[in-house]
C-alpha cells in the first residue's frame, strides 16, 4: 500500500545573502499512513516548523522527494491540507463565523453549504454562542479553537499543527488536546502535530518522531503503546510513563 504521505531523504538548506548556508533538515525519511496521528517532538531549532512547511508545499526541499499517495507534491495538493499555527492568526475584522469561512471564500466554494459546516464545527468546539463575536472578544484558547475550525472546514485530509498549544496555559492546553483527540476520533483525519510537550505527544500520537537539533534529523520513531480512544486515565498508566521516559532519553541533553 502506498503511504498517504512519504518523505524520502529530504534535506533543506537555507542560503543567506552572505553566501553562508545552514542545513535545517537532513536525511528525513518518513512514511505516514492515512488516519495516522504523528507527533513530532524536538528541541527548538530542530527544523520541526521547516518540516511542516515542506509538507504543505510552502517551501521546496533542497534534496529528496515528498510524495502524496505516490504523486510528487504539487500545488493542487494544497487543498488537502488544513493548517493550525502557534498563534490563532485570525482576521480581527471578521466575525468568528466569517473567519472559519475564509478558506472557502478563497477557494470559491459554495458558501451556503460551507456555512452549515462551519456552524457544525463551531458547535463541536463549543463556540456555538460566539459565532457572531469578533476574535478580540474571545479568550486566547477560544481563538485557537476558531483557528482549528478554520483548518477543518472543507474537510482536509491532512491537518498540520505547528505547536498549536504552545502559548496556552496548562489547563486550556489539556482541554484543547482532548478536543483534538475527539476530532481525530470523529473525523479520522491524518495529523502532523509539532510540539515541545512530551505528555501531549504521547497522549495524542500514534507514533512520535523524535528529532535532533541542527541539522534536524530524525533520531527515532516510537510507537505509542496506548489503546484508543485515549482518555485522561491513560495519563496515569505505567506504559505512559515508560514511553515518556524513552522520549526523554532520546532527547537526551536536549530534553526540555
Amino acid at each position: 500500500m502506498t503511504a498517504l504521505l512519504s518523505l524520502k531523504e529530504v534535506e533543506k538548506d537555507y542560503r543567506f545573502t552572505s553566501n553562508e548556508s545552514m542545513t535545517a533538515l537532513q536525511g528525513i525519511n518518513l512514511e505516514v499512513q492515512g488516519r495516522e496521528f504523528i507527533a513530532i517532538v524536538g528541541p527548538s531549532g530542530c527544523g520541526k516548523t521547516t518540516l511542516l512547511k515542506l509538507v504543505s508545499g510552502l517551501i521546496k526541499p533542497s534534496k529528496g522527494s515528498i510524495t502524496i499517495e505516490g504523486m510528487e507534491l504539487q500545488k493542487s495538493h494544497r487543498q488537502l491540507f488544513g493548517m493550525v499555527f502557534q498563534q490563532p492568526a485570525l482576521l480581527p475584522w471578521r466575525k468568528v463565523l466569517d473567519n472559519v469561512l475564509l478558506p472557502c471564500e478563497i477557494r470559491k466554494q459554495d458558501l451556503g453549504k460551507a456555512r452549515v459546516q462551519a456552524m457544525e464545527l463551531l458547535e463541536l468546539v463549543g463556540l456555538k454562542d460566539f459565532v457572531n463575536r469578533k476574535p478580540h472578544e474571545l479568550s486566547y484558547g477560544m481563538q485557537q479553537r476558531v483557528s482549528i475550525c478554520r483548518a477543518l472546514i472543507s474537510d482536509p485530509k491532512i491537518l498540520l499543527m505547528d505547536e498549536p498549544f504552545a502559548s496556552l496555559d496548562a489547563i486550556t492546553r489539556f482541554d484543547l488536546a482532548q478536543l483534538i483527540n475527539d476530532i481525530w476520533n470523529m473525523k479520522h483525519i491524518t495529523v502532523l502535530f509539532v510540539t515541545h510537550n512530551i505528555q501531549e505527544a504521547i497522549f495524542l500520537g500514534d507514533r512520535i518522531v523524535v528529532m535532533t537539533p541542527r541539522p534536524g534529523k530524525i533520531r527515532s520513531i516510537i510507537d505509542v503503546p496506548l489503546t484508543r480512544p485515549r482518555t485522561k486515565e491513560h495519563l496515569y498508566q505505567h506504559d505512559f510513563s515508560l514511553c515518556a521516559k524513552t522520549v526523554h532519553q532520546l532527547l537526551g541533553a536536549n530534553a526540555l
Binding site: L58, Q87, I106
Partner: peptide, 12 residues
C-alpha cells in the same frame, strides 16, 4: 502576520 501570509499561500 507571517502566519496569515502562509495561510493565504497554503489556501492558494
Amino acid at each position: 502576520h507571517r502566519e496569515l501570509l502562509e495561510l493565504a499561500d497554503v489556501l492558494g
